[in-house]
């Protein structure tokens, strides 16, 4: 069976971003970019399913600027067989991405689509669910375990208070949580091999999707700063401060 994984190029998770001076967004010029951590987990899971012999082909998809090719090459270095870039310079919001992915899914007809649960830049946590809705597919979000059979998937999900397991008829959409797996490091030989794998580029117009944003960002601001705290010399002082000054215990 064929698996489709969606990957996003985002500001590296170790970078502390700054709001730009005119309050229109965050400053991402000259900032290190990488694959969204949840998407690495998604690619890793697809590769593991392939290594188990349950999957025959892995297609990685990314939507965005030309540079997303790097992200797709990373996915191919982890083990994806080929890449599709939906190239556009337009601002892409989750609904538009879901529609683009839906068009790719219609074309590729995968049995399973794996996405990260959220991207660490917009923190939206929407695309997987929206794609499932548009394609009328069942969904399992926040997956920490995926078991695959010929025509169904059994997925354990992280929910508030514990875990729950659902069974889905394939084709289905799964979004990954942190605990699903530990993504492998890409090796140099695999990076070289990935350069030779096929990468197809399409435009949103080729897919017949209107990507116009639905939401207008009016302003991006720094969060309120916390007042400077104090260091206390010992436990007794700490207790006294909490009781008398902060009055929280």
């Amino acid at each position: 069976m064929k698996v489709l994984v969606a990957v996003k190029r985002v500001v590296d998770y170790n970078v502390k971003v700054r709001v730009n001076s005119d309050n229109t967004g965050v400053d991402i010029a000259n900032v290190k970019m990488s694959m969204n951590p949840f998407d690495e987990i998604a690619v890793e899971e697809a590769v593991r399913l392939k290594e188990k012999g349950l999957v025959t082909e892995i297609v990685a998809v990314s939507c965005g600027v030309d540079k997303c090719q790097e992200t797709l090459r990373t996915a191919m270095a982890i083990g994806a067989d080929r890449g599709i870039l939906v190239e556009t310079d337009a601002e892409l919001q989750p609904l538009a991405v879901a529609k683009l992915l839906k068009a790719v899914v219609d074309k590729e007809q995968p049995s399973l689509i794996i996405l990260g649960k959220q991207a660490i830049d917009d923190d939206a946590n929407q695309v997987g669910q929206m794609l499932a809705a548009l394609g009328d597919l069942p969904q399992a979000t926040f997956a920490s375990k995926v078991e695959l059979a010929a025509d169904k998937a059994s997925v354990t999900r992280e929910v508030d208070g514990g875990l729950e397991t659902v069974a889905l008829a394939l084709p289905a959409v799964v979004t990954t949580d942190l605990r699903l797996n530990e993504p492998r490091y890409v090796t140099l030989p695999n990076i070289m091999k990935a350069k030779k794998k096929p990468l197809e580029t399409v435009k949103p117009a080729d897919l017949g999707v209107d990507v116009a944003p639905r939401l207008k960002t009016l302003k991006v601001a720094e969060p309120a700063k916390r007042g400077a705290g104090v260091k206390v010399p010992d436990v007794a002082t700490l207790v006294a401060k909490l009781k008398n000054e902060a009055k929280v215990i």
Binding site: P94, A124, N125, Q126, M130, D160
Partner: peptide, 23 residues
Amino acid sequence: ATASGKNVAPRVAAKLDVAQISD
């Protein structure tokens, strides 16, 4: 914006063909 709400809200928004605003 709990595990349940986040699971369902985008599905509803996509069916209505509207954006969803998270958190």
